[in-house]
């Protein structure tokens, strides 16, 4: 087998040695803390709706960054940087879908 299983065999080998378990624990804790903050803000009604939405969106953005760096090793890898292309495409789709959904669903404010 080529790439995929070659990497599997090196499970304990050189290419994976740099992923210390500490890194995963840190990432895990960070993601838990970020989740806890958003839940706490929502449950305690700490702010008005509009600023709350903005804060939650920013926290969600941090969450993505944590996932990408601590678990998906976005900065590593060899060969052509397909993943950067995929990330850019993903960002475009995400923003397009989110903003256009706001645009489409904004009709409620006119109707009701």
């Amino acid at each position: 087998m080529s790439t995929s299983t070659d990497k599997l065999t090196q499970g304990n080998g050189p290419s994976h040695a740099k992923h210390r378990s500490g890194q995963y624990v840190l990432g895990y804790l960070l993601s838990l803390v970020l989740t806890a903050i958003s839940f706490a803000l929502a449950l305690t009604h700490a702010m008005h709706v509009a600023p709350l939405m903005i804060v939650m969106t920013i926290l969600a953005g941090f969450q993505i960054v944590v996932q990408l760096f601590f678990f998906m090793h976005v900065t590593e890898g060899d060969g052509p940087p397909y993943h950067s292309l995929a990330l850019i495409l993903g960002l475009i789709f995400t923003f397009a879908i989110a903003l256009m959904s706001v645009w489409i669903m904004g009709f409620g404010s006119q109707v009701s």
């Binding site: 645009w103 489409i104 669903m105 904004g106 009709f107 006119q110 109707v111």
Partner: peptide
Amino acid sequence: TMGAGADV
């Protein structure tokens, strides 16, 4: 037909 408006 949801009625999101002419622009949408």
